[in-house]
Design a protein around this nucleic acid. Structure first.
Length: 470
RNA sequence: GGCGGGGUCGCCAAGUGGUAAGGCAGAGCUCUGCAAAAGCUCCAUUCGUCGGUUCGAUUCCGACCCUCGCCUCCA
């Protein structure tokens, strides 16, 4: 079954056909973080979504080139750099490092290219020069350069490809508030912002005077540099569709005269405990906050991956606790398969092919992850049943495991690291076994409690007691 | 005001013009010295409200109620 994705450009789900004539290579760009603070759970939903898109493409056999920018110069950053009396690089560096740490904790594959805005100023200047040359940009009195939507439209281009806009009404806009810039038209946006006092040391030289790039231009410059003038997929949060993505299209197509992106995909926002996430409500979580509460990155990943990407998702702590239980069930099942099929290495057999087909069909249908999980849990139940009936041979187990590995190459939840119990814990477990043998159940239960207090659960299996880290 | 998502079991969340996936929570049973793990069974005659189309609608149409988002630098 061919992959089908919802394309914001057409507002419909359509077959995914890469630009590559060989049908192999795929260029994927996702708007990355603005490194002025720790990314919050809402940001993470978008990045985990991007990771899912990439993994699904790779699962389907595509050779993906994944690019994600790092926005390391922007209004909020400059403001905080000034407040913290530090340098731009020092300030953004800490959050950039934290971002990648978190990305790894969430089991996301690292993008192949992660360009920083500040390291691509020349590319942006080139692009701006091109836009001026083509007459769709103009230099204002203060030295800033703006994109002219009117001129752009005059060339027969469409502004408003991702959202329906009533351009004439926009121009009439009642929003004539503090217009701090010298724009010809309210809808025009900055490509280059002339240096002002508050920028401090954050500025670059340009043919139009000192200043810094506008927000949208970096994505156009860096995505086209890494992926070419026209590429397959561009992702981001739904709020970015307008104006950011719309402006990217305008800048890119205005400069190259070629289509910019074939498929646009937007991830929906999330709410926390049924409410819009906000700092004042105390439901504003960073990944660090959740890790500090004792949840793991893979639990957060699992929860973020339980809902369809285009639906607003309600993120709850209760859900996160449920995620722990659900994952433990998968771990238990996969763990048993590992024990049984350790020595074999069979390809997924026919018993697993239904599972794989169901899983893959679900994902192909615009990433129907919920249906994919349903396939996973049905498989877990079925596998457990066969495990309990001892109906599985080592070869069966190995082949089931191979199927799981394939599925997990998309889900990316991996398996819980099997912790080796330390000597002290082992000794206690042995003591309990001895007590049990002597029918001293009181003592045995006391030891079990003690182990529990030390963070270890003990389960009696036909093969003897088994220790598990809680 | 304009545009666009949603309202499905206690919670989360799929789905379909033909009678409701999955996860968590919950109940009972099997196994166990007791547990745990696992298995089995149960857990929405019902899909925001009211109309309409239809042999049949949760699914299509209309109205209404509620909710979320975007409308110039927020994932």
């Amino acid at each position: 079954m061919a992959l089908r994705f919802h394309n914001t450009l057409t507002r419909s789900v359509q077959d995914f056909v890469p630009l590559d004539p060989a049908g192999k290579k795929v260029g994927l760009y996702c708007c990355g973080p603005t490194v002025y603070d720790f990314a919050h759970i809402g940001n993470w939903r978008t990045f985990v979504f991007a990771d899912l898109v990439r993994r699904t493409l790779e699962f389907s056999g595509y050779d993906v080139r994944h690019v994600m920018n790092i926005t390391d110069v922007e209004d909020k950053i400059i403001k905080r750099v000034r407040e913290a009396k530090t340098t731009l690089r020092d300030f953004t560096g800490q959050y950039e490092t934290a971002f990648f740490d978190d990305l790894k904790a969430l089991g996301c594959r690292l993008p192949h290219v992660t360009p920083r805005a500040t390291e691509h100023i020349p590319e942006m200047l080139d692009l701006i020069a091109k836009l001026l040359e083509r007459g769709v940009a103009y230099k204002a009195a203060d030295g800033s350069v703006y994109f002219s939507i009117e001129k752009y439209r005059g060339c027969g281009c469409t502004y408003g490809q991702l959202v329906k806009l009533n351009y004439d009404e926009m121009r009439a806009g009642r929003r004539v508030t503090s217009d701090e810039y010298d724009k010809e038209s309210l809808a025009d946006f900055a490509l280059w912002k002339a240096r002002v006092l508050e920028d401090g040391e954050v500025f670059w030289a340009s043919p139009w005077g000192e200043g810094r790039p506008g927000w949208h231009i970096e994505c156009s410059a860096m995505s086209m540099k890494a992926l070419g003038r026209t590429f397959d997929l561009h992702l981001g949060g739904e709020d970015l569709a307008f104006p950011h993505h719309e402006d990217e299209i305008a800048q890119s197509e205005g400069a190259t005269g070629q289509p910019f992106v074939k498929y646009w995909m937007h991830g929906a926002h999330l709410m926390v405990e049924g409410k819009k996430m906000s700092k004042s409500l105390g439901n504003f979580f960073t990944l660090r906050d959740l890790l500090a509460k004792g949840y793991s990155g893979r639990e957060v990943r699992y929860l973020l991956l339980t809902a369809h990407y285009r639906e607003t998702f309600n993120f709850t702590l209760e859900g996160l606790t449920g995620a722990k239980t659900a994952l433990a069930r998968i771990d238990e099942c996969v763990g048993k398969l590992r024990e049984l099929g350790a020595q074999g290495s069979s390809p997924p057999g026919s018993a697993s092919s239904d599972f794989l087909a169901r899983f893959s069909n679900a994902l192909s249908d615009d990433l129907n992850i919920s249906a994919a999980w349903a396939a996973v849990f049905d498989w877990v139940r079925d596998t457990n049943k066969r495990l309990a009936d001892t109906a599985l041979t080592a070869a069966d187990a190995a082949s089931a495991l191979a199927a799981w590995e394939k599925v997990d190459s998309v889900l990316g939840i991996g398996s819980k690291a099997e912790a080796e119990a330390p000597g002290e814990i082992q000794a206690l477990a042995e003591e309990r076994t001895a007590a049990k043998k002597a029918k001293d159940f009181k003592r045995a239960d006391a030891i079990r409690e003690e182990l529990k207090a030390k963070g270890w659960a003990i389960e009696d299996t036909p093969k003897g007691p088994k220790l598990k880290k809680v």
